[in-house]
Lab assay of single mutants.
Amino acid sequence: TTYKLIANGKTLKGETTTEAVDAETAERVFKEYAKKNGVDGEWTYDDATKTFTVTE
Protein backbone atom coordinates (compact mmCIF):
# COMPACT_ATOMS: atom_id res chain seq x y z
CA THR A 1 0.00 0.00 0.00
CA THR A 2 1.25 3.49 -0.80
CA TYR A 3 1.18 6.03 2.01
CA LYS A 4 1.85 9.75 1.62
CA LEU A 5 3.47 12.25 3.95
CA ILE A 6 2.78 15.97 3.69
CA ALA A 7 5.45 17.93 5.57
CA ASN A 8 4.65 21.47 6.66
CA GLY A 9 7.88 22.14 8.51
CA LYS A 10 9.81 25.32 9.12
CA THR A 11 12.77 23.99 7.12
CA LEU A 12 11.12 21.22 5.09
CA LYS A 13 7.95 21.53 3.05
CA GLY A 14 6.69 19.02 0.52
CA GLU A 15 5.42 15.52 -0.02
CA THR A 16 6.91 12.05 -0.13
CA THR A 17 5.51 8.53 -0.36
CA THR A 18 6.45 5.10 0.91
CA GLU A 19 5.27 1.56 0.30
CA ALA A 20 4.36 -0.19 3.55
CA VAL A 21 2.36 -3.18 4.74
CA ASP A 22 0.29 -1.04 7.12
CA ALA A 23 -0.16 2.47 8.49
CA GLU A 24 1.89 1.71 11.61
CA THR A 25 4.91 0.77 9.50
CA ALA A 26 4.48 3.83 7.27
CA GLU A 27 4.26 6.05 10.34
CA ARG A 28 7.60 4.72 11.64
CA VAL A 29 9.24 5.36 8.25
CA PHE A 30 7.82 8.88 8.02
CA LYS A 31 8.71 9.81 11.60
CA GLU A 32 12.30 8.70 10.99
CA TYR A 33 12.35 10.73 7.75
CA ALA A 34 11.02 13.79 9.58
CA LYS A 35 13.55 13.36 12.39
CA LYS A 36 16.45 13.15 9.92
CA ASN A 37 15.21 16.37 8.32
CA GLY A 38 14.75 18.21 11.61
CA VAL A 39 10.95 18.34 11.48
CA ASP A 40 9.19 17.97 14.83
CA GLY A 41 5.53 18.85 14.97
CA GLU A 42 1.95 17.69 15.28
CA TRP A 43 1.04 14.52 13.38
CA THR A 44 -2.31 13.61 11.86
CA TYR A 45 -3.40 10.66 9.73
CA ASP A 46 -6.31 10.34 7.30
CA ASP A 47 -7.09 6.67 6.69
CA ALA A 48 -9.38 7.42 3.73
CA THR A 49 -6.51 8.95 1.75
CA LYS A 50 -3.65 7.07 3.48
CA THR A 51 -2.04 10.44 4.18
CA PHE A 52 0.05 11.54 7.14
CA THR A 53 0.60 15.23 7.79
CA VAL A 54 3.21 16.76 10.09
CA THR A 55 2.95 20.45 10.89
CA GLU A 56 5.48 22.50 12.83
Rank of each mutant, 00 (worst) to 15 (best):
T1R: 10
T1K: 09
T1N: 14
T1G: 08
T1S: 10
T1C: 11
T1Y: 13
T1F: 14
T2I: 14
T2N: 05
T2M: 11
T2P: 05
T2L: 14
T2E: 09
T2C: 09
T2W: 11
Y3K: 01
Y3E: 01
Y3G: 01
K4S: 05
K4M: 07
K4G: 03
K4W: 11
K4H: 13
K4I: 12
K4Q: 05
K4N: 05
K4A: 04
L5N: 01
L5S: 01
I6L: 08
I6W: 05
I6V: 11
I6A: 05
I6P: 01
I6R: 06
I6G: 02
A7W: 15
A7M: 15
A7T: 15
A7Q: 07
A7Y: 15
N8W: 11
N8G: 05
N8T: 12
N8H: 12
N8L: 15
N8I: 15
N8K: 13
N8D: 09
N8M: 14
N8Q: 10
G9N: 06
G9R: 03
G9H: 10
G9F: 12
G9K: 04
G9Q: 05
K10C: 14
K10T: 14
K10G: 11
K10F: 12
T11F: 14
T11S: 11
T11M: 10
T11E: 11
T11H: 14
T11Y: 15
L12G: 08
L12N: 07
L12V: 09
L12K: 04
L12S: 07
L12D: 05
K13N: 12
K13W: 13
K13D: 06
K13T: 10
K13Y: 13
K13V: 11
G14T: 14
G14R: 10
G14S: 11
G14V: 15
G14E: 10
G14L: 15
E15S: 09
E15W: 12
E15V: 13
E15A: 08
E15D: 06
T16S: 10
T16D: 04
T16P: 03
T16A: 11
T16K: 09
T16R: 09
T17E: 09
T17K: 08
T17Q: 09
T17R: 09
T17G: 03
T17P: 02
T18C: 15
T18N: 03
T18G: 03
T18D: 02
T18V: 14
T18P: 02
T18A: 08
E19L: 14
E19G: 04
E19D: 11
E19H: 14
E19F: 15
A20P: 02
A20Q: 09
A20K: 02
A20S: 06
A20T: 05
A20Y: 03
V21Y: 12
V21N: 12
V21R: 12
V21E: 12
V21H: 12
V21P: 15
V21A: 14
V21C: 12
D22M: 03
D22I: 02
D22V: 03
D22Y: 03
D22W: 03
D22H: 03
D22S: 08
A23P: 11
A23F: 14
A23K: 15
A23T: 09
A23I: 10
A23M: 13
A23D: 05
E24N: 09
E24Y: 10
E24P: 10
E24L: 11
T25A: 14
T25K: 06
T25M: 11
T25Q: 14
T25Y: 07
T25D: 08
T25H: 14
T25P: 02
A26T: 00
A26F: 01
A26M: 02
A26H: 00
E27C: 12
E27S: 08
E27N: 05
E27L: 15
E27H: 12
R28E: 07
R28W: 08
R28Y: 07
R28C: 08
R28T: 08
R28A: 11
V29E: 08
V29F: 15
V29Y: 15
V29N: 06
V29K: 08
F30H: 01
F30I: 02
F30C: 02
F30R: 00
F30W: 02
F30Y: 02
K31A: 05
K31Q: 07
K31M: 07
K31R: 15
K31S: 04
K31F: 05
E32A: 12
E32Q: 09
E32S: 07
E32N: 08
E32D: 11
E32V: 07
E32G: 05
Y33A: 03
Y33K: 03
Y33E: 03
Y33P: 00
Y33G: 02
A34D: 00
A34H: 02
A34P: 00
A34W: 08
A34T: 07
A34L: 10
A34K: 01
A34N: 02
A34F: 05
K35T: 11
K35C: 10
K35P: 01
K35Y: 11
K35D: 08
K35M: 13
K35S: 11
K35L: 14
K35N: 10
K35Q: 12
K35H: 11
K36G: 07
K36P: 02
K36A: 14
K36V: 12
K36I: 11
K36H: 10
K36Y: 09
K36F: 09
N37C: 09
N37K: 10
N37M: 13
N37E: 07
N37D: 03
N37W: 13
N37Y: 14
N37R: 08
N37Q: 11
N37P: 01
G38I: 04
G38F: 06
G38A: 05
G38W: 04
G38T: 04
G38R: 06
V39W: 15
V39S: 03
V39K: 02
V39Y: 11
V39T: 04
D40E: 14
D40N: 13
D40H: 13
D40M: 11
D40R: 12
D40G: 07
G41R: 01
G41S: 02
G41N: 02
G41T: 02
G41L: 03
E42A: 11
E42R: 09
E42T: 14
E42H: 13
E42I: 15
W43Q: 00
W43D: 00
W43R: 00
W43A: 00
W43Y: 02
W43G: 00
T44G: 06
T44W: 08
T44D: 09
T44Y: 10
T44E: 11
T44L: 07
Y45R: 02
Y45D: 00
Y45S: 01
Y45A: 00
Y45T: 00
D46H: 06
D46P: 00
D46L: 04
D46C: 07
D46N: 10
D47T: 09
D47R: 06
D47G: 08
D47P: 13
D47W: 07
D47L: 06
A48W: 08
A48Q: 11
A48C: 10
A48H: 11
A48N: 11
A48R: 10
A48E: 14
A48L: 13
A48G: 08
A48P: 07
T49D: 04
T49P: 01
T49H: 06
T49L: 07
T49F: 05
T49E: 06
T49V: 05
K50A: 05
K50S: 05
K50W: 05
K50P: 00
K50H: 12
K50C: 07
K50Y: 08
K50L: 08
K50F: 09
K50R: 12
T51C: 05
T51I: 06
T51L: 04
T51W: 02
T51K: 03
T51Y: 02
T51F: 02
T51S: 04
F52L: 01
F52H: 01
F52G: 00
F52M: 01
F52S: 00
F52Y: 05
F52C: 01
T53Y: 14
T53E: 05
T53L: 06
V54N: 01
V54D: 01
V54T: 02
V54I: 10
T55N: 10
T55E: 07
T55C: 08
T55Y: 09
T55I: 10
T55K: 07
E56H: 07
E56N: 05
E56M: 07
E56R: 04
E56P: 07
E56L: 07
E56Q: 08
